[in-house]
Design a protein around this nucleic acid. Structure first.
Lengths: 194, 194
DNA sequence: CAGGTGATTGCACTCAGTGGCATCACCGTA
DNA sequence: TACGGTGATGCCACTGAGTGCAATCACCTG
């Protein structure tokens, strides 16, 4: 007989998400999360660096995958389409599986300023990864940074659609459409609404 | 004779910046800041909502100014150039005065993850303002969000150059140059005629 | 069976942030 | 001059996040 029930981390994550959804992130204490998971407050901090991390854990963006997906785009492809294509490829591999939990997750994050703040950090890290990959394709530094942030914006705009309860298009599909729409709209031509 | 020395808020800000620069943000306690400013710990929180805010206070982005600057761009101008032009116009009015303090401020923020995190929140708020202004110019929703984040990226890339000790170009000038460079290299349109 | 490993726990601590209340110069008004 | 309101400041006590350290104890290995 095991001394501890297995899956402590998963239990903590689940308890946290439910409590955050019920009471809000700010009104939920780590002690409550631990108690619902049948664990000690101290144990929570052995699994997650802080209270916010429990929401984002498991969403490792796999920098390696994204970077190589961008680097291996055909040579002639300009930076922004290359970044979006690489990101879309990686997104299909990484994100498509989370589809069920994504709605709850999105609601919880949207409801809390502190969690939105942490998500921005993830965004920035993603942008840095993309920018580095673009520089490796000989894009100059300022353009790489700007294109990276544009690609990230496209990713999150697409993800917000993908998150919608009724949606059944793939994330990669939505990203391509968002890029298309952005480029045609930015040029001032009518049409192309996502 | 006044009961209190005037300029408490300014004294707190100055003490905080110096201490952050000397010891780092994380190793500095609010009690230390207050003590150096000759004030009570509690008083600090009467002036600033939290420890991070003392760094960003006074950098109000004046949403109103930016929004109108974007909205009043000539009608034919497409979203991204309109956003950048409006932002550049507002930047000249708002930022050019802070030039002296900007180097120290930049160094302090760059050195602390917590402060970089807070700066991202300001970025996101700026992007929301810009996106709203673009929608008011009849840009469709997804394109407005993407163009807004691109404009913000251009702004911060330009600001990093502007922050450099040797620099003597204006922020607006650098923004225009960054946009120019981005359009010619990143989106794959020869000549960069957006 | 002895010893090491690792997940868990308990305790005590620092520090951010908050709420409530007291203080007291200053200002306007009677 | 007196009086009451205002607002910046100070003090006390509290909650809760996050940390350091040591102890526990099932399980594994030699």
């Amino acid at each position: 007989m095991a001394r501890w029930e297995p899956g402590a981390e998963e239990r903590l994550r689940e308890a946290a998400l439910l409590l955050f959804d019920e009471q809000g992130f700010e009104k939920t204490t780590v002690a409550q999360i631990a108690e619902r998971a049948g664990l000690n407050r101290r144990t929570f901090f052995h699994h997650f660096a802080d209270k916010r991390e429990v929401v984002f854990a498991g969403q490792e963006t796999s920098d390696e995958l994204i970077a190589t997906a961008i680097r291996t785009q055909p040579e002639g492809v300009p930076p922004l389409p290359a970044a979006v294509a690489g990101l879309a490829h990686a997104a299909d591999t990484l994100y498509e599986q989370y589809r069920e939990g994504a709605v709850l997750l999105g609601r919880v994050i949207a409801a809390s300023p502190e969690l939105r703040e942490r998500e921005l950090v993830k965004r920035a890290a993603l942008a840095d990864t993309i920018a580095a990959a673009l520089r490796a394709r000989d894009t100059n530094e300022p353009a790489a940074a700007v294109a990276a942030w544009t690609a990230v914006a496209i990713f999150f705009v697409a993800r917000n659609h993908w998150n919608q309860p009724g949606n059944n298009r793939t994330l990669a599909d939505l990203m391509t459409a968002t890029l298309e729409n952005y480029l045609t709209t930015a040029e001032g031509r009518p049409g192309g609404v996502l």
